[in-house]
Every structure is written in structure tokens, then in C-alpha cells.
């Protein structure tokens, strides 16, 4: 029996990926590919779980049956996405429990955007509309990625996220057409979320060392800057069509380039927020830790009962 050398396997792997084949759980893959994906999918799953909190805060206060029902459904979807993503990461050999423990220990990262406060009802609308639009652009790109389970999870998640965007947009339209106070609430929220949302796509390409390999292995199929530009081009006309605006006077359409120009966010702020020092990082993790602790007895009891049932 002849063992293929690592280099031969790597060449074959890269050729497969370049052809657009999907990599499946049992297939040979470079360890760096596996580790990168575990990290990315784990971060993505954590973002869904932590991402329940900023909007979930408004569930008790949601105005009207329709808003309350759709908000509960939306935040529930995020739990479902978390479940699906943890499952996708598990196919690469890391358990949900390990990943959650890392999150709670402050060792895992998650999207910057969930570390900002949500002081008004309009934040729910803006998160659904702006943040989820940015997420869907990123995730549609990831749905083209090379790892089968992640790409398939992304397809399903994008499908549900498209309803989230509608939900958010619809809530903002109601505010934009409402009383001056409602309108001001919408405008204020867009101002606060604009730059954090721009940061969601990650650091600029020139400061993103992993991009080259991630593109070669089709872990990503577009760069951070491409994804960000796509978001700006799509969202700015939508915002302005409602008579609202973004907090950037230099945000103008460049005919020659066919794109909107815009001011880059403060990349130092992104670094701080990603590394645990954003306005709400501590609070978000504290809340997660507390509910994890309070639920420990439930998980233990369910496990004990299942164990006895299996033994019987």
C-alpha cells in the first residue's frame, strides 16, 4: 500500500477546491483548513447566540401583536441558526460544549456588532434591516464556500435571514412614516449602527492576513472590502428612499466607479470590540454565563435521566 505524501494530498485537495467541489466531513483536508473552519463556524455560531440578546431585550416591549410575534420568531431563528452552526462545526471534530465553554471563558470571538447597546425600539428594526442585510451579503458569499456542511447551513440561514430583513425594514418604514418622534427614533438608530455595521465585514483587506489563503481554499469567495462595498451600494439608496440618511457626508455615488464612496470606520474601535473591550462585551458574556449556570441543573438532570434510560 502506498501512502500519498502530504504534498500530493494537498495538491489534490486544492485542485478539487479550485474545481468548485465541496469538501465533506470524512474527506482529507489540511489541518489548517480544518482549524480555520472550526474557528470561523464557531465564531459564527457564537454570534447567533450572543446576537439573540440585543434584540431579545425588546421582546417584552414590542408594540403590537404582529411585532411581538415576529420578534420572538426572529430571535428564535437565531437560536436555531446557532444550533445548526454548532452542528456544522461538530462535523470537524469539536463539540458544542467545548465551543460554548470557550465562548463563556472569553476565549472565543464573535461578531463585533452585538457588543453595542440597543437603547430604543428602533434598534430592533435597524438590526433586522442593516445588520442582517450585511450578514446576508456575507453569508451568501459563504454559501459558495468549499466546506459542504457550512455552505449548506448558510443556504438555509440566508433563506430565513431574508425574512428578518423584511421584518426590520418593515418596522423602520412604520417609524419613518410615523410621528416626528418615531421618525427621529429611526434616524438616531441608523446613525448609531452605521459604522458598527460597516465593521461587520471585518478589517480592510490590506490588514487581513488570512484573506489570501481563505480565498485559495474557498473558505471565502469574496474579500472583506468587496463584501462591505456591496453592502453600502445596496443599502444607501434604500435608506435615502425613506428620507433617512447615513452619518457620512462623503457618502456619494461615484459614477465612474459605479460605487458609493464612503468613509472608512475606525478600525481601532473594531480591534477593541472584537478583543473584548466594546461597550457591551462584558454585559453580553455575563448574561450568557449567568443563564448557562442557572441552567446547569437542567442539563445534568436530562443527562442523568437519559443515561438511566439507556442502561435500562
Amino acid at each position: 500500500m502506498t501512502e500519498k505524501s502530504h504534498n500530493e494530498q494537498l495538491t489534490e485537495f486544492e485542485a478539487r477546491v479550485a474545481r468548485g467541489d465541496k469538501v465533506e466531513p470524512g474527506d482529507w483536508m489540511p489541518d489548517e483548513y480544518r482549524q480555520n473552519l472550526i474557528r470561523m463556524i464557531g465564531q459564527h455560531a457564537h454570534s447567533e447566540i450572543v446576537g439573540q440578546l440585543p434584540e431579545g431585550k425588546w421582546i417584552p416591549y414590542a408594540p403590537g401583536f404582529r411585532r411581538k410575534l415576529t420578534l420572538v420568531a426572529k430571535v428564535q431563528d437565531e437560536a436555531g441558526h446557532g444550533q445548526l452552526l454548532y452542528r456544522a462545526a461538530e462535523t470537524l471534530g469539536k463539540s458544542r460544549e467545548e465551543m460554548i465553554d470557550e465562548l463563556l471563558a472569553g476565549k472565543a470571538k464573535y461578531s463585533n456588532v452585538f457588543n453595542y447597546p440597543t437603547p430604543t425600539w428602533a434598534d430592533v428594526g435597524v438590526i433586522g434591516w442593516l445588520v442582517d442585510t450585511a450578514a446576508v451579503i456575507n453569508q451568501s458569499m459563504l454559501a459558495q464556500g468549499s466546506y459542504g456542511p457550512y455552505a449548506r447551513a448558510m443556504k438555509r440561514i440566508c433563506y430565513e435571514e431574508s425574512f428578518h430583513i423584511k421584518q426590520g425594514y418593515d418596522a423602520i418604514v412604520a417609524l419613518a412614516k410615523g410621528t416626528p418622534a418615531q421618525r427621529a427614533m429611526a434616524q438616531d438608530a441608523i446613525h448609531r449602527w452605521w459604522y458598527p455595521t460597516l465593521m461587520m465585514s471585518g478589517p480592510p483587506d490590506k490588514a487581513s492576513p488570512h484573506t489570501e489563503k481563505a480565498m485559495r481554499w474557498r473558505i471565502k469567495t469574496k474579500t472583506n472590502d468587496q463584501v462591505r462595498q456591496e453592502f453600502v451600494d445596496l443599502i444607501v439608496p434604500q435608506i435615502r428612499a425613506l428620507g433617512l440618511d447615513v452619518p457620512d457626508r462623503d457618502c456619494v455615488y461615484d459614477e465612474a466607479a459605479g460605487h458609493y464612496r464612503f468613509t472608512q470606520p475606525d478600525w481601532e474601535e473594531l480591534k477593541r470590540v472584537i478583543n473584548g473591550d466594546g461597550p457591551m462585551n462584558k454585559e453580553r458574556l455575563d448574561v450568557r454565563r449567568r443563564s448557562h449556570e442557572e441552567g446547569r441543573w437542567v442539563r445534568e438532570a436530562l443527562a442523568a435521566k437519559a443515561k438511566r434510560a439507556n442502561a435500562a
Binding site: 447566540i49 439573540q52 440578546l53 431579545g56 421582546i59 417584552p60 401583536f65 411581538k68 410575534l69 420572538v72 420568531a73 430571535v75 428564535q76 437560536a79 436555531g80 446557532g82 444550533q83 454548532y86 448574561v287 443563564s291 442557572e294 441552567g295 446547569r296 437542567v298 442539563r299 436530562l302
Partner: peptide, 29 residues
């Protein structure tokens, strides 16, 4: 029940109680 959305002891129960909350709000409606 919707107060458990985001806070249940396991993800599966988070989803279940959110679902029950929606059903109940739907029945109320």
C-alpha cells in the same frame, strides 16, 4: 414564556419555549 427566548438552559429549550410563546400569543390573537 417569551422571557426565556435567549436564556433557556439548552438551545433546544430556547427554541421550544419561543415556539410555545408564539403559539400562545397566536391563540390570544
Amino acid at each position: 414564556n417569551s422571557e426565556w427566548t435567549g436564556f433557556a438552559p439548552i438551545l433546544e429549550e430556547d427554541i421550544a419555549f419561543s415556539n410555545i410563546a408564539q403559539d400562545e400569543l397566536g391563540h390570544s390573537l
